[in-house]
Amino acid sequence: MTTTDTLADVATSASALRRFLHGLPGVDQVGAEERAARLAARSVKATAKAFALDLAVSMVDLTTLEGQDTPGKVRALCAKAARPDPSDPAAPRVAAVCVYPDLVATAKRALAGSGVRVASVATAFPSGRAARAVKIADVEYAVAAGADEVDMVIDRGAFLAGDYLALYDEIGAVKEACGGAHLKVILETGELVTYDNVRRASWLAMLAGADFIKTSTGKVQPAATLPVTLVMLEAVRDFRAAVGRQVGVKAAGGIRAAKDALRYLVVVNETAGPAWLTPALYRFGASSLLNDLLMQRQKLATGHYAGHDYVTED
């Protein structure tokens, strides 16, 4: 669809960027929804299910983003992230813990040596409505506190107004402020209205340097849906074909059941391919999902249905 030659100069001017994004093929809405629904009906059983559950646990970004978060709550969450199921040492640890910037230092201390990464939301999460300098300062604060990954929100207002170049520059500036930290760009697809916009925002974020594109903040309904994730996975697949760089995808918000998580993994495998079935390139942003995954693991291991009394409450 695109060649590296044309991609080199898509962002040289506002009109070139607009021409490129609006030149992307349109998303067949009915087709995407049908495809997602069909993949969701796939049956994952027995050993495949056991593999998928462990994989899903290892992909979880265990998240707490509430105004009432306390250091104690974050420490408890970190303990759970490092050892999700104390009754089973074979249970994998999660990929990362995701908190607000002021709690990054707490999480970093609690997770030292565990191999679990610390992600921080930034850039005036969740609305993204702040001055550029404030957003950059927010990112720099999180990175200085030790965040391994930064989840930025895009300025949806600028995107919907068609001010693509401003957004491109902003993502680039945030990427620079991240330094060595991984940058996840939250598109907030629930506010982008159409799948075409999701595809354009995905490409815009990837062109500007995103390491991950992420569906939602979790504060807006609808959050992650299967068709939206499918469209984003197509974008990262096509981006790799065009540029050669592999960008990750994170589905966040509203995924609470293990069964749903398995459906997402099927879509990942069938859309982007097995190369994306790793925590380095696919994540679930969730909190209650982890407990359901653990209960399903316990059901597979013991043969009887597991109980809520045997997993920790967040």
């Binding site: 009887h304 249905y305 109980g307 809520h308």
Partner: peptide
């Protein structure tokens, strides 16, 4: 049997 062994019962 599924009810008897269920840990939420």
């Amino acid at each position: 049997p599924w009810l008897a062994s269920h840990f939420d019962v």
